[in-house]
Nucleic acid binder design. Sequence first.
RNA 1: GGGCGCGUAGCUCAGCGGGAGAGCACUCGGUUUACACCCGAGCGGUCGCAGGUUCGAACCCUGCCGCGCCCACCA
Length: 854
Amino acid sequence: MYRRWVDAGYFRADPSSGKDPFCIVIPPPNVTGSLHLGHAMDHTLIDVLTRRARMQGHDALWLPGMDHAGIATQSVVERRMAAAGEPDRHAIGRAAFVEKVWEWKAESGGSILGQMERLGDGVDWSRERFTLDEGLSRAVATVFKKMFDDGLIYRAERLVNWSPALRSAISDIEVDHIETEGELVSMRYGDGDASVVVATTRIETMLGDTAVAVHPGDARYAALVGTEIEMPITGRMIPVVADDYVDPEFGSGAVKITPAHDPNDFEVGRRHDLPMPTIMDETGTITGTGTRFDGMDRFEARTAIREELRAQGRIVAEKRPYLHSVGHCSRTGVPVEPRLSLQWFVHVEPLARSAGEAVRSGETVLHPKEQAKRYFDWVDNMHDWTISRQLWWGHRIPVWYGPDGEVVCVGPDEEPPSGEGWRQDPDVLDTWFSSGLWPFSTLGWPDETPDLERYYPNSVLVTGYDILFFWVVRMMMFGTYVMGKAPFRDVYLHGLIRDEHGKKMSKSKGNVIDPLALIEDYGADALRFTIARGSNPGTDMSLSEEWVAGSRNFTTKLWNITRFALAKGADPALPLPAAELRTDADRWILGRLAEVRAQTDELLDGYQFAKATEGLYHFAWDELADWYVELCKTQLDDPATEPGTRAVLGHVLDALLRMLHPIAPFVTEALWTALTGGETVVTAAWPTAGGTGAPVDAAAAARVADAQKVITEVRRFRTEQGLPDRKAVAARLTGLDAAGLAAHERSLRFLNRLDPAGDDFAATASFEVATAGGPVTVELDTSGAIDVAAERARLGKDLAAAEKERDQADRKLGNPKFTEKAPAEVVDGIRARHATAVADIDRITARLAALPEA
RNA sequence: GGGCGCGUAGCUCAGCGGGAGAGCACUCGGUUUACACCCGAGCGGUCGCAGGUUCGAACCCUGCCGCGCCCACCA
């Protein structure tokens, strides 16, 4: 039922509270229409944290992100209009379209989520419906009013970033600076002595020039300052002003000033009280200049004006291509046009200061901490925020204008002024204005609700680092301002998902991977596991289908381990065998479980998803499946150890499945319920130190390692001798007792298909394995001559490795400075390695000498 | 222009002062008491380059080269 992918949001938990029902709210991606792997990353990590917190007995829930719901609303309305054969939104205009959106919202039960509910996925959306619509609108109006009254919101005519494509103002952060090939044209204004040369990359703006500026200390132009020169084309007389802004070293040392179309020029214009004519309309078309260029697109005009000036002989230099940085609208990719217009702004300085303070004081911790520098750089140098948008969708600005110039900000519970001539501001708010209220508006604010009391501040925010400035900073500012407390204890910033070669996914490159297709092919668990496994804090991950396939293989492995366990009657409800009855393998795997459990907790507490996942992967596959399951097969054949083995296997698998559940919920749910008979692993207890059953037994672990070494060496011998794995070979094993491995003989023989040595045993091959407990000699009757060349090669390789080891150790130990200065345990370690290497060399050399000539 | 980060096996990445690792890919061999989405055994690296610190450097410092991201009002 909850086998759905999830949309962006954040999660919160309060460890001190009692339990209450777990809530996984998952908007279906086919409705939001905006699901991509970036969301999958958010959702996976959020869900991992939520599920684990839940299993730990915490009250944990999370809510979907809102901006996607907004986008979805707009797109659903557009689709409805298209279906009804209505003209598109551009044809009917902004005001009419917004009316339609509200109309649709009322019809659909007030929210996008109401619409989702009708899709019948059985999720209760009631809470979200409230928070996303009525609640949020009220919160937005409340905050706006409060900030307006506090003087933190003001309206001003400023030069803003204008997107001619959106026909709207956009904020600084929505502008991408891109290196662009343009042209730098130098031209002469005025004539004779009363002339200067200026350079520009945007020659069309000369129609709006109202001055030429030079540096006050520049002797070349001292005589001109205060005089006027004649502009080409318009014939206007414009002053030459002196301003520190000009760099006398750059170009000619003189700058044309277009106050209404360039941020620097705007400031110069203000200082010198220059006129500020706007020469372009909201689409970037030249207008109102009284020249023949009116009606031309800005880029068309650029060429036309340049050629006109060239014809007049005023172009003195051209540099093309001229590489420079040009601001582009991040939504539409169109070059931004700075434009003088009346907009609403937030005075961010006091808000940004408290947002910065919250992190500096440790009230909120950023993970990874390297991101804090970026955060501070941003928060400490933030410009005022343009919040009004001339867009199609959003919360409307709650300000009404009266017939006599009155300006009234209307609070959420107030009636707007009515009567002749009153009208509401036509603009809407930047989506990040409302998004920034998320941590408390979802909890019922501005009402003082029990939820707000209980869940604010939230525990942790999980999101991509690319959204640090857009969303995180806004939430921090609003949270500290409105609530007096930062909204989160922790902020975990994950990296972005790239393609298999580390390239950013983009539609134009065609390397976008659809998460739903991956889920279809490999299962949701496989994708989640892949994402968790690749999520190192702050670093991007490359995701390819091969990785997802590998994760799918892992879930299959879990399936097979459990199938084996069930077939053998493994049962976590059985009591673990008394300590003295446990085999080495039992002690070892229980000890490893305890270690892995502790490590997993530590890593997840620190948001180290990749390492935690990797640790569980290797424990499950390399240790449990490859070794314990194999070693326990002989234990299961022995009545003395059989019940204990079933208990240990069940116990370890139970704990493992519980720890894997947050990462791979579906497969673990199926396997865990089958193994334990429990109702659901979702509400099972997270393994704790007290619950893993056994302390680490280093001696047992060492004996298991020795047994593994013997087994591996025999396998190696067999492989290189070309002895098929399935062929049973008679063997005599000596030295096991001395090495403490007597109890392991059955496993050794079983796993290597070594039959007992009968009366007619005649060893045709033998070798010695050096274990920590002592040497073990393996003699084999291979019923024929061994491949001497292969054996020589095998031993030769071992010998070379041992000699290299010995030589390295010799070199270190022969250096008196090393033995004097290095810590004693390091020196002892090298001595031990040296001794082992020498013993290996002796042994191997003897073996080689004993081999018959090839 | 400033800041941050990264260059380790064919690919994607871990390791961040004392024996070069993982997954995938590749080679060879496999119908063992779960698993071919598997099992076993292998091959594969002057850890970007050059200096420095240290008894010891993939790891710390400096410089350089290459790459990525973020920020930036120089015509």
